[in-house]
Design a protein around this nucleic acid. Structure first.
Lengths: 236, 236
DNA sequence: ACGCTACTGATACGCCGTACCAGAGCCTGG
DNA sequence: CCAGGCTCTGGTACGGCGTATCAGTAGCGT
């Protein structure tokens, strides 16, 4: 029987279980996670199945996977945390604390824009992975360094962090919906614009990443507004 | 063949297609959506299947559903928008614009807390439903009434809205992870606390909705901080 | 009375996650 | 050097899923 499933208490997350040690291991956890990420980036969340990952890895049977990973859920958790590593950018040289938070927030936002499947998983998996935790710690450190303390620190972290998540989620929703239609962005904008009574050009400009009125700009200005409003020891 | 699927262009969302009219209809769209919501509230997103909805409605075959709904995705979109109606609370008597936004934001947050499955779907479905749109319109109106205009208006809406979504998503993540473990909240906190090196009591207090250090309070203070920082025509 | 349409109920297809099992190879203790 | 017990492979199987398909039926407009 596959080793990973032996654990009596599953606890709902990979991060609450020990990784199975191995010696023979022709297939490491990393291999599996990497293959999964590649597949997820290419085909989206619905395109991922244990069988496809197995095929991608050249092993005919899925049983090979279950030696390194308890179930599909584990694999997804590992994949999400893996790509979050991309959000851990250095910020010391970015300027004052507001600029630093801007850089960090944008980095996370861009990671989620690159990997919409990860965004779709944010509401189903508690942030227990090491990279997720490092990210929030980095947020906390910057704000603490700026003089935020106690409740005010918590509130400021909450404001910035949740704003980033929310923006990523909203963008991923558009992306996934368009993807589901099977149409190219442009064509979808035309068809959808008709139904919604919006000029396709306006819709396109609203959704296209590069457009000056696109989501990336909206994200940055929204974040800026929050950051400008934040001040240490503001509340009593 | 089921009528709904006839539409040549699916466009990725119910809201971009016409509802099939019907005369005989012993089973309305509303019936189906209501049954789905009941099931989702009770069993979570993974507990919903077309077959189970059909059983719940007393019709043996799932084909009955496909006359009113093109596919499972449509049903989920309809369910999400349906529960969003609960977030459309009146705000005129709540005080100044900040208080009004506080009331509206909290209402939405609480809706998502009551229906975590809807939160899990936020990243997969663009907000095209009527209730979703009404909600954002209400946000816009309050801020416009407070004197926000143009880019500043967009940024303020983005800040408030995305913060609410992000907080809901983060909370749903904890909820879903604990749910998946099959343990009661208390027991999970003990087991997880062990693994993470956190006192179970601290973890419990952090997660329990009623606790003074719980997610609901964190949401409110975070939102308050954002609102306090917002001012009409702040940016150039 | 007829035929069309909207619908029912059943069945079927091809996928999914994952359990199971027989065997293979290797590691270790005697 | 061998025996036993690991870890791991490959194959198969189970039950459930979304949804297509199809033969029948009931009621309505003419």
């Amino acid at each position: 029987m596959a080793r990973e499933a032996d654990a009596k208490t599953i606890l709902g997350s990979v991060w609450l279980r020990a990784e199975p040690e191995s010696t023979k291991a022709p297939l490491t956890r990393q291999d599996i996670v990497d293959a999964a990420i590649q597949l997820l980036d290419k085909e989206g969340l619905d395109g991922l199945s244990m069988r496809r990952v197995a095929v991608e890895l050249g092993t005919a049977a899925t049983s090979a996977l279950y030696w390194r990973v308890a179930n599909k859920n584990d694999l997804l958790e590992l994949a999400v945390d893996e790509i979050l590593a991309e959000a851990l950018v250095p910020t010391e040289d970015a300027g004052d604390w507001r600029d630093q938070l801007g850089v960090l927030g944008l980095a996370a936002y861009e990671v989620f824009a690159r990997h919409p499947w990860a965004t779709q998983l944010l509401a189903s998996h508690a942030g227990l992975g090491p990279n997720y935790q490092s990210f929030t710690e980095q947020l906390v450190e910057i704000l603490a360094g700026a003089g935020f303390k106690g409740v005010h620190l918590d509130a400021a972290v909450s404001a910035v962090f949740h704003y980033v998540i929310g923006a990523a989620v909203t963008d991923a929703a558009w992306h996934t919906t368009i993807q589901r239609s099977g149409l190219a962005d442009q064509q979808w904008a035309e068809a959808a614009g008709d139904h919604l009574g919006i000029a396709p050009a306006t819709l396109s400009a609203y959704l296209s990443a590069d457009a000056p009125t696109g989501p990336a700009t909206r994200f940055s200005t929204g974040l800026r507004v929050i950051l400008v409003g934040l001040r240490p020891r503001r509340l009593s």
